[in-house]
Design a protein around this nucleic acid. Structure first.
Lengths: 233, 233, 233, 233
DNA sequence: TATGAATGAGTCTTCATTCAT
DNA sequence: CATGAATGAAGACTCATTCAT
């Protein structure tokens, strides 16, 4: 089957193409999509602006590709690490948080991209992300919460529909603030370990609550998935 | 000594100027700063693009004015409603959350603006916001947390330096997702009341914790829309 | 005779109007006419841009006024000091040079304005200057030269029609270069006296000629800062 | 290491680029730099305004290029034709004038450009021209004059530092007035030959001096259109 | 007499995009 | 596969000018 001449085959992923996607996703995270020009992307990838159009003809196709070939990887990375349905909710939540932190280690562009382009405003990426959202996991989480409330183990003031938003916010939000710390308190920048421990604690028993048995259990569960080093309840 | 002729005085606030600031802050929240053109702002305010330059000669002076005359109002609104130093920490935190939700009612552009332009990326607003941050309140919160940990009433896994980030995230983040719900589940959009109740519960005892006495006390206080001072930290 | 309301009377010359003309002519000399905006003129005069249009409605009227009320003064100043028809040509020429240097002392904006806007290119001022040119003196000078050539006292290679151009160039040109010297040789800027003596010498016997009796006479006269009428042609 | 992508290489000189430079230098001479818009230049070169920015990104780089690739050619053309150090001063000066007239024949935009943008006012070109000035020739000329004065062959009233200014003025100035003549005396426009003969005569023995032996020698040399080396200073 | 508000036209510049090679 | 040349559309900004006060 001959492909139209002058167009790269859809399944061809030469170096330049991958380099462009990497450059694009990094710049989108740093400056935002609207502030990133085709020339910026080309410059960071070390190629000509014309080449960007060679691969991603209308500018928006670059966005599509970033979503389908970069952002979706992050989602897949996280969902692949989610524990089974039989895991108790607190442990499941802690494991989710861990998965996000692990993924952000490899793909640090995701947290800023997420909060800037998916959460806020019209979010250029929001619509495109729709088909990559882990709907199943989101639904399951809401169901878990609702069920826990029925059983009396989860505060009824929690809104199940907002559980995923809170979970994502508690992890992505502090991760996205990291560059911010350089300005606020250069000497005392929290490490990624601090962020992870803090996020798990907040999800387990809030900002002001004392360590509870449930939380300790959840943390212990997480210990199997991650470093939970010396932590005593 | 006459000021630079042909320029409006800095303290003049005619109607058109205020309308331009309102238009700008709304558009910045909706589309982001980089994606908002001078012409967009002028159009929404019902004036000519040239008038934007009449009042805010280089584009950036519009940004400055938005920060100094709009965003700072949000901060002032919140800090003015913070309870006194003798308030127990859980109640103080709950009151903070309430203050944010109240302010967002009057200034709905703040949450998206905050997470997009202050938290994420290079944040054009971040530097400009520096002088408007409630540094005192942020420091006091961190001190509270640290003290509670010393007394054993707050989980030592909580990172005091991240307390403000979490507090802001727990409130601003869900508020910023509101336009998002129209896409996800048009029929079941959480109300602002849901958001507020949820945020308070998360801050009090996490996503998966059961309602505790302390949390219940805080919640009751919230019902009266004033901080519950009798509750012990 | 009632004048139209809202217009200043044509014969009224309040301070602001004169200040605007002074500011305009100075700026035109420094930056050129094209590079001088209405706001620039207003700023230097310490008034509002709108006032410039109050007095000189279309921008070009300001130009007309500058020609008629400033540039023409320079011309008048020079022609008023020209010696009589009976003066021998070398002395007449020397007196002309002196008159120009004297006028430039009081109106230093003229030399740059002259060479930039009257001599060069389309010269915005050229057409407007037409009616202020000292046609009579120019014609008389050409006639003198021609006659001198007939009598054998002036080199026939001199082109009578170019006499005025040369005379003006020899005086205006070095005067206009004065700001230039600050860059070239800050320590050794020629004084106005140097310029005057040099110009007279060049006009008298060229760049490379030895001092002649006639020239010496002219020079002595210059020392007294008045034309030497007794010197024979 | 690739150069900044999307920009033409600095050493590339396609046709359009040269056409733009030619158009620019011509318009600068006619209207002045400040009065010449990017669109004007593009229109005369028969291309889009955007192309001007493609080659000369900030407007000022066009100026730089005009200086480095057009104006400097004029200077080079003149200096290449200057006679050797052993040439007597009067002949050297006459040769200089001839070289200028020859260069102006090929590059008629130089005289107006020179007096408008290099001599007058702030002269946008003045600073940029600094590195292209024939400093050596200028210094040598001043030294010649000073030495002639010491030997008594040159009038001590001549100011050596002003020799170059006078030399340039005597040649460039009348050349720049040529378009002016169309207005003044359409029927009797001096030819370029008139201008050249006149300028040489003025430099040799002034406006009012009689023809001298030395000058006659110089003039005879000019008739052959080459510097007369045999004439004694 | 004087000015602040407001604007239309135009200028410089950027940028995504096209196309011949 | 890749790029240099070229452009249309649009953005920020300037400026002379108008007008109500």
């Amino acid at each position: 089957m001959p492909r139209s001449p002058g167009r790269p085959p859809l399944d061809a992923h030469p170096d330049a193409r991958a380099a462009l996607l990497d450059a694009a996703v990094a710049l989108y995270a740093e400056r935002g999509i609207a502030a990133t020009t085709t020339a910026d992307v080309a410059a960071r990838a070390g190629v000509t602006p014309a080449l960007v159009h060679y691969y991603f003809r209308p500018r928006e196709r670059l966005l599509d590709a970033v979503v389908d070939e970069r952002v979706s990887r992050f989602v897949a990375h996280v969902t692949a690490r989610l524990p089974g349905a039989d895991t108790p909710t607190p442990a499941w939540v802690a494991a989710f948080a861990d998965a996000v932190f692990d993924a952000a280690e490899a793909m640090p562009w995701m947290p800023p991209l997420w909060i800037r382009e998916i959460i806020a405003g019209d979010g250029a990426l929001r619509m495109k992300m729709a088909r990559h959202l882990p709907r199943e996991a989101i639904g399951a989480l809401a169901a878990r919460i609702a069920e826990g409330q029925k059983r009396g183990t989860i505060d009824p003031a929690i809104e199940p529909r907002l559980a995923f938003v809170t979970l994502a916010g508690a992890t992505m939000f502090p991760l996205a603030t990291q560059p911010l710390w350089a300005n606020i308190a250069p000497g005392a920048v929290p490490t990624r370990g601090d962020l992870r421990r803090h996020a798990r604690a907040v999800l387990a028993h809030g900002l002001t609550g004392p360590a509870t048995a449930a939380a300790r259990g959840g943390r212990r569960a997480a210990a199997r998935a991650t470093p939970a080093r010396s932590v005593s309840g």
